[in-house]
Measured scan of single mutants.
Amino acid sequence: MTEYKLVVVGAGGVGKSALTIQLIQNHFVDEYDPTIEDSYRKQVVIDGETCLLDILDTAGQEEYSAMRDQYMRTGEGFLCVFAINNTKSFEDIHHYREQIKRVKDSEDVPMVLVGNKCDLPSRTVDTKQAQDLARSYGIPFIETSAKTRQGVDDAFYTLVREIRKHKEKMSKDGKKKKKKSKTKCVIM
């Protein structure tokens, strides 16, 4: 069974824990209790493949930012979460993405942009803004509501699919490099 290491990042209060708990335990946590770091595991079937999701729910508070490099190193894919009623959390996505790329030393890291709290009427981040940002990053965008469960499975499952595509691409690139290195030079 394939294991996928997913990391949920975003500013404090955007609903990272609520999304994760909704996926794992099928219930909505409405009281806000700032996370330092929590880890969850769940076995699911995605596109006919049974897999184990190892999900790291991270601290959004700035005082825990020193811990970010460590979990970013171990993560295979990242859910970059903002709240649709919090423009600052949307603007912060850029910083999370840049930090992930720096730590992973790669421009090509599996990510999904997630606009959470889409059940709320007080939207300050337009869907088109988020779609445009995701398009500019070359990553999928999904709106979710941890409260109603809308888009929750889709967000995590899409990230797994992005990781699969990335692994497939990397193995193809690896095979191309191996083929090239088999060419021999004969000096007579």
Rank of each mutant, 00 (worst) to 15 (best):
L23A: 14
T35G: 15
A11Q: 09
D30F: 08
P34G: 14
I46W: 07
G12D: 12
L6I: 13
S17K: 00
I36Y: 02
D57F: 00
D38A: 02
L19K: 12
L56Y: 12
T35D: 11
V29M: 08
V8D: 01
H27F: 13
A18L: 02
D54K: 04
L19N: 14
V9T: 05
Q61M: 07
I55L: 07
I24S: 10
V9G: 03
K16P: 00
D57P: 01
G15E: 00
L23R: 15
D57S: 00
T2W: 05
D54Q: 05
G48R: 08
G60L: 14
I55M: 14
A11C: 12
L19D: 08
T50A: 12
A59K: 03
D57N: 01
E63Y: 04
L56F: 11
V14H: 06
S17L: 00
G48T: 07
I24W: 03
T35W: 15
R41V: 02
Y40N: 02
L19H: 14
L56H: 13
G48A: 07
L6K: 01
G48Y: 05
L23Q: 15
D33L: 04
A18T: 14
Q25R: 10
Y64A: 13
E37S: 06
I55G: 11
F28Q: 03
E63S: 08
E49T: 12
K16N: 15
T20N: 10
S39F: 05
K5Q: 05
N26R: 10
Y64I: 06
S17G: 03
E49P: 07
E31C: 13
E31R: 09
D38K: 01
L53C: 07
G60C: 15
I36N: 01
Q25L: 14
D38I: 00
V8C: 06
I24V: 10
Y64K: 13
Y32H: 07
A59F: 06
C51E: 07
V29N: 06
V8A: 03
G48C: 03
T2C: 10
L53G: 08
V9P: 01
T58S: 14
S39R: 04
A18G: 12
T50V: 11
D57T: 01
K5E: 04
P34Q: 14
Y32P: 11
L6R: 01
Y32W: 03
D38Q: 01
G12A: 03
V7S: 06
A18D: 09
Y64W: 10
F28E: 03
T20G: 10
Q43P: 10
V44A: 11
E3N: 08
A11L: 13
S39K: 02
T35A: 15
D33T: 02
G12M: 04
V8S: 02
V45K: 13
L6M: 12
T35Q: 15
I36A: 05
A59Y: 06
D38F: 02
V14K: 10
I21H: 15
Y4M: 14
L6D: 00
Y64P: 13
D30M: 09
T2M: 08
T20L: 09
Y32C: 10
Y32K: 03
Y4C: 13
H27C: 13
D38W: 02
G48M: 04
L56S: 13
H27S: 12
F28T: 03
G12I: 03
D33W: 04
C51F: 12
I24K: 11
G48F: 03
I21K: 05
V8F: 03
L53V: 14
R41L: 01
Q43A: 10
F28Y: 12
E49Y: 05
D47S: 06
L56N: 08
S39D: 11
D33I: 02
V9S: 04
I46M: 08
F28D: 01
E31V: 08
V45I: 08
I36D: 01
Q25W: 03
H27P: 01
Q25I: 09
D30P: 11
G15K: 00
Q22F: 05
